[in-house]
Design a protein around this nucleic acid. Sequence first.
DNA 1: CTGAAAGCGCTTACAG
DNA 2: CTGAAAGCGCTTACAG
Lengths: 342, 342
Amino acid sequence: MSKNRTTLKDIALELGTTITTVSKALKNYPDISKETKKAVIKMAKKMNYEPDMRAVALKKGKSNIIGVIIPEVVHFFFSNVLEGIIKNAEEKGYKIIITTSHNISKQEKKHVRFLFNKKVDGIIVSLANETKSVKHFDILKEYDIPIVMFDKVSDTFQCNKVNIDDKSSAYKATEHLIKKGCKKIAHIRGPKHPLNSIARFEGYRSALEDNDIALNPNMVMECKDVTLKEGYDFTLELLNSDDKPDGIFAVTDQIGVGAIQAAQSLGIKIPEELKIIGFSDSQVAQIIRPSLTTIHQPNYEIGETAIRMLIEEIELREAHGDSDIDFRQIILDTYLIEREST
Amino acid sequence: MSKNRTTLKDIALELGTTITTVSKALKNYPDISKETKKAVIKMAKKMNYEPDMRAVALKKGKSNIIGVIIPEVVHFFFSNVLEGIIKNAEEKGYKIIITTSHNISKQEKKHVRFLFNKKVDGIIVSLANETKSVKHFDILKEYDIPIVMFDKVSDTFQCNKVNIDDKSSAYKATEHLIKKGCKKIAHIRGPKHPLNSIARFEGYRSALEDNDIALNPNMVMECKDVTLKEGYDFTLELLNSDDKPDGIFAVTDQIGVGAIQAAQSLGIKIPEELKIIGFSDSQVAQIIRPSLTTIHQPNYEIGETAIRMLIEEIELREAHGDSDIDFRQIILDTYLIEREST
DNA sequence: CTGAAAGCGCTTACAG
DNA sequence: CTGAAAGCGCTTACAG
């Protein structure tokens, strides 16, 4: 037996009163008598009433839904950020619609469009590796839909942003290798476009420079998909060249793990002959032997901060209309964790 | 300058026609002239029109949103399932709202309620470890909202289900240890309630029985949160007892990894003195040394299957009203991957 | 304290 | 071929 979901009308009919009264009673308006409220609440419970949020959303012009666009879900960093987003959103009565770009710009565009017509209250995004132009986000600005970018942000787009200081973190990582005695330091870097892979490269370059080590372009490898396999293959290539590195700064832990496995396959001793440092502090960094020195970044807090900023902006706009917002960029701290690989 | 989002009315006004005509033109109704259609489509584009899905949903009684309730996002198995769900949902024009129970029944109840009043078209769920009664799902049945359960399912609740054969997989795992010569096999099992941890225990028990090995209750440890640390601690306890196991069947890879680390901390050789097998085939199983023998389960396919069944049911009900549905339980195959730990 | 009415943005049966 | 009207389920300013 299928029932239709109870509406205000059903309750009003049952009680011989009107929709208006029922609606007000349920929302505890002061101008409704206690008896009426009691009766309405009782009947609502009995009839399993739950407000139709679509109707509420339509009426109020608010959906309490936030859209998230990230490259991947099966990913140590992003799943942790997502966790931070979801938990804090739920606490404040917002729900999350999640979409994944798989680092493809076209997908990202589609999702922006979709979330736009789903009338989400705001959007959190980490750009696809492939994305260069962020024109497809302009429509959100035009219609005053708040956006927060994290991790892979745009430098030109005006909005709230959360990330870490990739350059100084990469500097720290490279400097660590230098302090440990490395002279020939390779960098397996991220793809061309994302600002954070550029910043990490800059940190690497800058640390070499400050320590009077010439940058050898043959020692910089550029990943496409940033997979363990790429880390493995690039490391083999580096270690089979005439000019072997004695240190590798890997742009992520996955790359670092691939590097360790490649070195081991050639019988090269870590950290004696080769030192390796990763980035992210994911679980594999602790579990691999030798364990991987890495840069810890506050994943959960990045998600938490992003959702907080977004909800603040949403509620600020609700209160003051489209008053001008001062956008901020919040930079969270990282630290180096030394393990066996250096 | 904030704009209000364009509505049908805006377009009609601009064109000096009516909402009806604009709506029909955009949906390519046959009874609208070509010229009108052309003009409407052009104007819609110019004005950045996107239909308000809330209104469409309200009118049509459909939201094209599917709710997902899972214990965790930061979790190898669940993030992979989620990936399978999201990708296949997007292809069919559905979006996912994701909520996490953190294995707490109360949270799960709250989410069911929330998703119900969000009027999602259907729900996919893997039960919280804590959940015994599934009464809180009854409301979905009452109102004909399709549900698919996966992994941690209920045996009493009538709905479509997707999982693996946990019992026979566990049997396979235990039998593998026996074939490798283990005589004293411990099992670090999952929590009390979830059917799949019970089934895995049953598989273990049954394999021992078939091989004339008496089950020693002291060799069965029960996890609460199924964390690496629990695996570590229980393994220390087992290995420090008078009656040491020579094999451990761990209910997940995380437990298996903890077991390996605990054994190593005591200087016990794997696999010579102790053999360990996990369950899931997550990345850590490949990366730890010795690498972990495990049961591979098709994570992505579980998600894919769940969302397919759900969408099928949604569309079936749309077409035929609440005709009776034949619920199915789809069992996906697992296989054993032998690595260094056995 | 209660209720009639307008309206959020759409869809669609019906009339012309 | 075009359009007026009802209605999806709510909220809320207004009248009584």
